[in-house]
Every structure is written in structure tokens, then in C-alpha cells.
């Protein structure tokens, strides 16, 4: 019977509704196991000294000021960009809805990099939504429940995404390796122009991920003349196992 269930699960998607229901059912377990961490956070927040709060406050003020200045610049650049795009008749928009979510659980299987986050269909989440943190791309949503969902990290060894080099728009495919701190570029020829320290952005080619979010940085290249392709190792920008709060990028309504 169990074998039959496995086969049904494997070759059909009849069980999808059940799995989604199960996600809502499993959510309490993840929430309960998350309680110690939450208490830790709360205690940490309660027991801060006044001085450290004041310091943090002034630091954040400065940061806000800096970011505001940068966003002023950005507004001008964005307007210019839109004008240029209009000139080129391209209908691409950068508008996106953002949803802040909290990571409440990690998949118990050490071989798959899956996180459980506390936003689901009720909050507008859908399968394929891109997840980022403050530093870069983290992954995408693969299963949606009522108010929780599962996301696959880009470092999972079954994950691959189209990227491009910021410096020269060289296209490539970044693959997860099963290691939280490594990505690999696949099928990049030995002669391609890529250097250590190059930043790779998502290229938006697959239609899954929005273009232009930082994915990782090249930390090692091995060009072996005996092989057809160069081995390029990336370090992901997003903090795969340290992000507690993540951002989900939702497609704007009407698309």
C-alpha cells in the first residue's frame, strides 16, 4: 500500500491538494519547535542596555539617511531607464510587490535545502515566487499552504537558475551543489571571459526569477585544457542559513 502511495506521488499530481493541506497541518509542529528561538530573540530584545539601543538607533538613522540619498539617485535613474525603455518599445516593468516573511522551520532532511516560511496563499504567495534577503537571492517557493509555504534554496543540488555576469552580461546557469556556501556555473567554455570576484546577477531568462538580483560572487575558477568546460565556483550572496527574515517578491496584480 505504501509503495502504491509512493508511485502515485511520483507519477501523478493527484496528491497535490492533500500535500498542501498537510503543509497547514504540519505548520503547528514547526511553529512549536521555533518557540525556543523566538523566546531567545525576545529575551535578547528585552535585556538590551539603553546605551546599545541608543547606539543602534543613531546607526540606523545614519543608514536611513544614506539609503535615502541613494534612493534619490535611483529615482532619477529609474525614470531615465523607463524613458529609454519606452523609446525602445520594450514593455518591461520593475514594479514588484514585496512580502516580508519569517523563516519558521528547516527541512529535517540534511540533503535537501528547504525552508518553511510563515506566509502562504492567504497572503498572496504562489508557487515560483522568488525569495530574497538583504544581500541577494535565496530561492523560490515550491509548495504553498494556507498560511505557510516551503521554499527551495538555490544551493539545493536539484536547483539551477539562469544568471549573468554584471561586468559583461555573459550568460550562464548557476547550479546548487548541496553545500550551503557554494554554487557552480555549468557549461561555461574555457575561453569565456570570467574572473575571480565577478558578481553574478539573476538574468530573468527562465521567467521564474526577476532580473537583476545578486546571486553570488566568483571565488574560484579552474581552467583545465583537457576539459571542455571551465569549473567556476560561486559563493552565494544571500545568507542561506542565517536569514531569519526574508522577502518574497510577488508579481504585480493583473499579470
Amino acid at each position: 500500500m505504501a509503495t502504491a502511495l509512493i508511485l502515485i506521488n511520483l507519477y501523478t499530481d493527484w496528491l497535490q491538494p492533500l500535500r498542501e493541506r498537510a503543509l497547514s497541518l504540519a505548520a503547528p509542529f514547526y511553529l512549536i519547535t521555533d518557540v525556543p528561538a523566538r523566546i531567545g530573540d525576545w529575551v535578547g530584545a528585552q535585556w538590551r542596555s539603553r546605551q546599545s539601543l541608543v547606539e543602534e538607533n543613531s546607526r540606523l538613522h545614519r543608514q536611513v539617511l544614506l539609503l535615502k540619498q541613494q534612493s534619490q539617485l535611483l529615482a532619477a535613474v529609474k525614470a531615465e531607464n523607463t524613458r529609454l525603455k519606452e523609446l525602445m518599445n520594450s514593455a518591461e516593468t520593475l514594479e514588484q510587490q514585496v512580502l516580508v516573511a519569517q523563516v519558521i522551520g528547516v527541512s529535517p532532511n540534511p540533503m535537501e535545502h528547504v525552508l518553511i516560511i510563515d506566509k502562504g496563499r492567504n497572503q498572496g504567495m504562489y508557487i515560483g515566487a522568488a525569495i530574497i534577503d538583504a544581500n541577494g537571492l535565496l530561492g523560490q517557493v515550491i509548495e504553498v499552504g494556507d498560511s505557510t509555504s516551503r521554499m527551495l534554496l538555490i544551493t539545493d543540488s536539484s536547483h539551477a537558475l539562469p544568471v549573468e555576469v554584471l561586468r559583461n552580461n555573459l550568460r550562464a546557469v548557476a547550479e546548487g551543489t548541496g553545500d550551503l556556501y557554494r554554487l557552480k556555473l555549468r557549461h561555461l567554455s574555457n575561453t569565456s571571459d570570467i574572473r575571480q570576484g565577478d558578481l553574478l546577477l539573476s538574468s530573468g531568462l527562465g521567467g521564474r526569477f526577476p532580473a537583476g538580483y545578486p546571486v553570488g560572487e566568483v571565488i574560484a575558477i579552474r581552467r583545465d585544457p583537457g576539459r571542455a568546460f571551465a569549473e567556476v565556483v560561486l559563493q552565494p550572496r544571500g545568507q542561506m542559513n542565517r536569514s531569519r527574515f526574508v522577502l518574497a517578491l510577488l508579481r504585480a496584480e493583473g499579470e
Partner: peptide, 16 residues
């Protein structure tokens, strides 16, 4: 299986 989100039946089979 339901709680961990693994393929339905994985643990059902092994535990049986």
C-alpha cells in the same frame, strides 16, 4: 511524511 514534507509513503513504507 506529512509533517516532514517528504514523498508520501516514504516513512510509511520503511516504518511498516
Amino acid at each position: 511524511d506529512l509533517v516532514t514534507g517528504s514523498t508520501l509513503g516514504t516513512h510509511a513504507l520503511s516504518l511498516s
